[in-house]
Design a protein around this nucleic acid. Sequence first.
DNA 1: GTTATGACTGCGA
DNA 2: TTCGCAGCCATAA
Length: 109
Amino acid sequence: MKESDFFERVYEVVRQIPYGRVTTYGAIARYLGSGRSARIVGWALNQSFRSGSFIPAHRVVNRQGLLTGKHNFGFQDTMKQLLESEGIEVDHDKIIRFDELFWDPAENL
DNA sequence: GTTATGACTGCGA
DNA sequence: TTCGCAGCCATAA
């Protein structure tokens, strides 16, 4: 049994994010059934590093497409570097053309 | 066991 | 349009 099915589901969804795509905490939370539990999604990603498996948390941003959790990568540049590495344009810690790169789990899963 | 905080979002004024 | 508040769940102290 899981003490936090929510976390595992979050990890799973984040791992399903295709290359060069991004999603939001709210989209994931809403997909899981809790639209306002977006904070837990963020918490899950924070723990994702502890999870033992690498989670493309850099592909998960807030509703504004802002890299809110970049500092959690250790160095603030890491998240931006990863995004740019995937072809995602990031300007001032914000994703460009976020609406185009936005990947909704509810529409793909 | 209780309290406080956290990578958020949506709605009201 | 901008600012402020409430809600949700889990973890940490």
